[in-house]
C-alpha cells in the first residue's frame, strides 16, 4: 500500500494523544507506521519487538510518557532499560539497533512525537536492506528460553 519502511509502534494509551494523528490503526501522515495501543509502555514484552523485526517489520518503536511522569510510576524507565538490552542483543546478531526505538512523549506532544517518528523512519530508510523475514510467521512464538540461544 505505502512505500515507506514497515514500522510497528507500540504506543502507551496514556501518552501521546493519537486520536488526531491516527487513521485506521496507522499514522495519517505516515501510513507505513502501524500503531498498536497498549495500556502502558511497560506492557510491551521485548520478545514481541524482536518477533516483529523477525517477521519482516523494518523497525519497531515503543512510546511511553515523559520520563518521571509514567502513570504507572516506572513503566517507561523499565521499558527503556529493556529496549537498551534488546538493542545490545540485536547488535550481537548483526541487526542494526537503529531499527529499535524508545520514545517518550506526553499527551500534548503530538507534533514532537510525529517528528521523532519521522526521524526514526528516515533513519531506517537509510539503512541497508534487512535480512529477509523469517519463514512461516504464523507459527506460535517459540518459548523464550529457546530463543535466547543464538
Amino acid at each position: 500500500m505505502s512505500n515507506g519502511p514497515k514500522v510497528v509502534g507500540f504506543v502507551c494509551d496514556w501518552s501521546v494523544d493519537l486520536v488526531p494523528l491516527m487513521e485506521g490503526g496507522r499514522l495519517r501522515e505516515m501510513p507505513s507506521v502501524r500503531i498498536i495501543r497498549v495500556p502502558c509502555s511497560g506492557f510491551v514484552r521485548p520478545s514481541w519487538l524482536e518477533d516483529a523485526l523477525g517477521r519482516g517489520a523494518d523497525g519497531v518503536f515503543v512510546t511511553g510518557c515523559p520520563y518521571g511522569d509514567c502513570l504507572n510510576r516506572e513503566g517507561n524507565y523499565l521499558m527503556r532499560d529493556r529496549v537498551d538490552q534488546l538493542q545490545r542483543r540485536l547488535q550481537r546478531r548483526r541487526v542494526d539497533p537503529a531499527r529499535l526505538g524508545m520514545l517518550a512523549y506526553g499527551l500534548h506532544d503530538g507534533p514532537a512525537f510525529l517528528a521523532a517518528v519521522r526521524a526514526f523512519v528516515e533513519g531506517i530508510r537509510a539503512l541497508p536492506a534487512a535480512a529477509p523475514p523469517r519463514s512461516a510467521p504464523a507459527a506460535p512464538a517459540p518459548a523464550a528460553a529457546e530463543r535466547e540461544t543464538p
Binding site: P39, C40, F43, R45, A143, A144
Partner: peptide, 14 residues
Amino acid sequence: CVECGICIGACPFE
C-alpha cells in the same frame, strides 16, 4: 493490581 501490564513486559516466559 492496577492492570498496567508491566509484569507482562517483564516476563520472558509467557
